[in-house]
Design a protein around this nucleic acid. Sequence first.
DNA 1: ATCCTGGAGATTGTCAGACAATCTGTCAAT
DNA 2: ATTGACAGATTGTCTGACAATCTCCAGGAT
Lengths: 250, 250
Amino acid sequence: MRGMDLRVAITSVQRQAAEKLRAAILAGVFRPGDRLVEADLCAKLGVSRPSVREALRSLEAEGLVTIIPNRGPQIPVLTWTQAAEIYRVREMLEGEAATLCAKHATQADIEQMRVALDLFGKAVRGADSALRLSATADFYGIMQKAAGNSLIDELLRRLMARINFLRAQSMSRRDRAQSSLREMRVILEAIERGDSEGARRAAALHVKAAANAARAVLGGEDVMQEKLRGPEKKARAASSKKNRPARASR
Amino acid sequence: MRGMDLRVAITSVQRQAAEKLRAAILAGVFRPGDRLVEADLCAKLGVSRPSVREALRSLEAEGLVTIIPNRGPQIPVLTWTQAAEIYRVREMLEGEAATLCAKHATQADIEQMRVALDLFGKAVRGADSALRLSATADFYGIMQKAAGNSLIDELLRRLMARINFLRAQSMSRRDRAQSSLREMRVILEAIERGDSEGARRAAALHVKAAANAARAVLGGEDVMQEKLRGPEKKARAASSKKNRPARASR
DNA sequence: ATCCTGGAGATTGTCAGACAATCTGTCAAT
DNA sequence: ATTGACAGATTGTCTGACAATCTCCAGGAT
């Protein structure tokens, strides 16, 4: 093979740290509002503070954590307004990706998407939430790669990361997962018949539906702040037990 | 005034460093392909290496610099493919911003945009490139603020930063600047009459024209790599002469 | 009893210095 | 001319330190 990639994966500690943290956040290890104490992260990741801090700067620029001066990093709490903005942009970008995919996808691409979609269908029927997430990720991953615009791919990936928390919550509702499956089928059908504008519309519709489901979870107006900040105090008491057992005397 | 913002600007060294660097890159102090040596930046910014490194991480995530492991940060060299992707996304986002602006803009917003556009016209006639840049920035700044979607605003700002170099080059051509002025007038007119779809079309058209002008500068295919990497070697000899004494003098 | 005021502890922001790993360019040897 | 080794420059990472700031709790004043 002429174009085989022989490069050894060369990476650095803080890059790995950033990756681990990103994965942890996406996996829901931390919840919105949680503070990330540098010292703890050092211990958990097994690296020094400078590396952790650099990793955190990267994540901050990606919007995955918010760093408040003199207070430190924490998982951002989304308001509904912010979430709505993300969904709106996602709608445009995903629509474009679907259009591009309908134009450029090879038979192999389409075949892969079909496999991913079948897998998703199985996950929905079996209520397997982990498989559901990975199957959708696959489906979109293939679509975006086939679309051939790497910027859209990257932007979408970051936006998805930011609303990951919401997606997990709204997807856990069975009916939403099933509608989602139907909508994705429509997208794929349009791509199969090379209907680029149809694919765009279908993708946009799908995101709109997802946004509606998310709004239901979030409560329409920006009440979410209270919804999530209410439990925070209780959570802090619990987590302080975990973080500094020595002082749990009270 | 009830809502007056009394907060003192609380910020940190590395945030300021990041800002300074960002501004320097946008101002064209560094050219694509230039390496940013940490020690030099420390000297120029007057801060320590950890702060510089954290600032660089932020800029990396924003796409303003590329950090190659064991080689360090450098200003990314855009290929035409990448630039085209950016213009495509910019077209969508700016179209949406124009639409939203047409829907939500107040009379005051429109008035401000008109002022900025007049200023831009004056800059074009007077061949004042600095004023040209600030006037366009104003025009779009007002438009995006009036649109009321802060995510689009932020994404556009970052994308613009990445193609800043191209914009400066293609805008320096008088005819392009004049077409630009005409196109922006059309956008504003659509906004004034509340024609949201017209505003979207006009904005998209404007970005398409800008992309064409940029392609002319960049040479259509990805030849740019050579174009910019050629002078790099000569530049390095000169810059090392320039960079080294700074170390000795302090 | 409630509110204000210190202070103690925790955490972040920043720096200096050090050292290994890696890259780059030069120069000699084949 | 290509290869190989060496020296210098630069990055990646860690340690330790200290000031600035925040948070929470206790004690005192009203």
